[in-house]
Nucleic acid binder design. Sequence first.
DNA 1: CTCCATTCCCGTACGCTGTACTGGAATGAG
DNA 2: CTCATTCCAGTACAGCGTACGGGAATGGAG
Lengths: 238, 238
Amino acid sequence: MTGDEGPGTAGVNPHRLWLGDPRPRRGRRPAYSREAITAAAVALADAEGLEAVTMRRVAARVGAGVMSLYSYAPDKETLLELMVDHVSGELSPPGPPTGDWRADLKAVAHLQRAHMLRHPWLPAALATHRTPGPRALAFLEHALAVLRPTGLDGGTKLEIFAQLTAFVTGHVAHEIARAPASRSSARAEAEARYLAAVAADGRHPELAEALASPGRPLTPEATFTRFLDRLVDGLDSH
Amino acid sequence: MTGDEGPGTAGVNPHRLWLGDPRPRRGRRPAYSREAITAAAVALADAEGLEAVTMRRVAARVGAGVMSLYSYAPDKETLLELMVDHVSGELSPPGPPTGDWRADLKAVAHLQRAHMLRHPWLPAALATHRTPGPRALAFLEHALAVLRPTGLDGGTKLEIFAQLTAFVTGHVAHEIARAPASRSSARAEAEARYLAAVAADGRHPELAEALASPGRPLTPEATFTRFLDRLVDGLDSH
DNA sequence: CTCCATTCCCGTACGCTGTACTGGAATGAG
DNA sequence: CTCATTCCAGTACAGCGTACGGGAATGGAG
């Protein structure tokens, strides 16, 4: 898994994608690399969002012709898959499990949250299911190690990880949507006015009261921690 | 909120969308309705998925010209918003809260899950944030009523509902991805073989063991209930 | 009734997308 | 050198969302 495989990976089977392909012995040498193309696509998504990732713009960033990309990934869907796995490399666990699996699992979730906040396009990209690449599998390996002390069977451990990831994804998607950067103040104001108007129409007494008693606002981080703790502390080992 | 508003709603402010617009007194009478167009789009999404919902195909289903749709919704993004709210109408609460708010809240989540399974495009459509329309607000009103016995402040109640929805959305997205209908057996087989190959490479001992001890497989419903119970039972009404 | 401002319908057109096709350039083996 | 192999990328096409604008319908005013 050097991440530097050249073309020739445009096979039908997407899973063959992750299994190394020995470089052919003859013919022209590749001018680019899957790694470089993926990195360019990630940079584009980080800077301008997922919808800015078009084959043309990625190619331009790499300095290649548009159609050349198709030698490195059979289609755009696969390029997205490569992007997800590429950034998964940043998810390096802080160290071996401590034995306190609840604390470790919470740390895993916090890592995932920070990771998704760093790449705000990730929740959307993960919305459609993708098979985990090598780097994502490395992180899964860590999560499973964390869960070892629970003594749970393999299916349950995998399920816990999937649920935890789904939870984090959902939370971060929501958090991003509420983030100031993604909301022009004009829009936020308009929405507030809309909700106030609905609350004032008399047919939504609960909403009116909820909006009237906001309580002290928590940071997204605090909210995340609170719900995460609930979820993890509720898991029992056996 | 009759859902039968005619054209003329193409204002800049999307929130004005939900506030009724009195029919103009002069001029040609609308030939279609926002409701009919939305229903056609929903039917299309139900039958062939979100990516089948194009302006052209929706127009064809309604029997209208493509550009006519833009008299009823300013753009496709708004049409999606209308679709989400349209199906939210199916989320009618089974009755007033019983007073057992934990049980009621779990029922709310189960309703949401069934709803999303009925419209598998919903998780993807909800991935980008949307402001709740009248039907979604009616359901929110119910959820807030359910939470009344907790005595929590409004902000927390809203947060709980958002988190619960995020949790359900994440779970269902995952569930749908794993569903047989969305996975050709060939693909599922290929993925299984890929994972087995990775597990056999010696560098993923935890994964290898997890795959070797699957445990008894649970239905998605059972898994959902288990995690939901953890989450809800962990909430305190302080 | 006629006249006309108003309102809506929708054909045409444009720029953008993902990608199939294909011919040409580079490479290493025999 | 010759040639099969491999990769690069220009051209082209169908399909997308939607801006524009002319024509058709409508109801109030005279």
